[in-house]
């Protein structure tokens, strides 16, 4: 048996390309969940009443310190226990989003903490409502500097999507495993999956660096 079979490679590439779409879908939806939930966590933890902030802080530490895989199982297996049927993809994306929301919340916290006090005081002086202070004054200033950090977590989330294969979501890794077991050849599918991840990660890392450089220039100019 040859070590690397090019014909086989070209046969399975379309299958993997289709699976890559599922991976991207999980990444994007997962990250939207993470970004929104993370912001809610951060605001709740920083500005919420004590009865909310303290348990929230504990919950965030809890999620951050325990394995994503178990969290995926938990959501996937526990919902049906309460009579709510949940699709594997939905459970996986929820777990990814929740897990990375805790990371994102730390990033938001740093961004919010960097807003000078004067901005809050000016908003109060203008008699703005808390909602408008956040929406119009704080968030627009807090987000741009943390975009690179959020970008890094987007890449990290992307690299964790293969965990969804554990609950049989047909993303890249699961597809590769199925191809491998059907053909008794794992070398090509798994190596290809690795290469696809490597290429996407390198591109994403380069984009994050570009954004970072762009932001730095913009901040210096203003």
């Amino acid at each position: 048996m040859k070590f690397w079979d090019w014909k086989f490679t070209f046969e399975i590439l379309p299958l993997l390309a289709k699976a890559a779409l599922v991976t991207l879908e999980a990444t994007l939806i997962g990250f939207v969940v993470a970004a929104i939930l993370g912001l809610a966590f951060a605001i709740g933890r920083m500005f919420g009443p004590k009865w909310l902030a303290v348990p929230l802080a504990g919950f965030i530490e809890f999620i951050r310190s325990t394995p994503l895989l178990i969290q995926i199982f938990f959501i996937y297996f526990v919902f049906p226990e309460f009579g709510v049927s949940i699709e594997a993809m939905t459970a996986g994306v929820l777990a990814l989003g929740l897990h990375y929301a805790t990371y994102c919340s730390e990033v938001y916290r740093a961004g919010l903490a960097n807003i000078p006090r004067g901005q809050w005081e000016a908003s109060i002086a203008l008699n703005m409502s808390p909602f408008h202070v956040f929406r119009d004054v704080i968030i627009p200033q807090a987000i741009p500097p943390i975009v690179p950090a959020l970008g890094n977590y987007l890449v990290a989330l992307f690299k964790d999507t293969p965990l969804l294969s554990a609950i049989a979501v047909l993303e890249l890794m699961q597809t590769a495993k199925i191809i491998g077991s059907e053909n008794f050849r794992y070398t090509e599918p798994i190596t290809l999956v690795g290469l696809i991840f490597l290429i996407f990660s390198l591109i994403a890392a380069a984009v994050v660096r570009l954004v970072e450089a762009w932001l730095r220039r913009r901040i210096i100019h203003s």
């Binding site: 293969p162 794992y186 490597l198």
Partner: peptide
């Protein structure tokens, strides 16, 4: 460094296991 940071831990695990 680039390969192990650029791919996913599970892919690396499977690669070492199967390949």
């Amino acid at each position: 460094i680039e390969i192990f940071r650029g791919t996913s831990a599970l892919v690396q695990l499977f690669w070492l296991f199967f390949v």
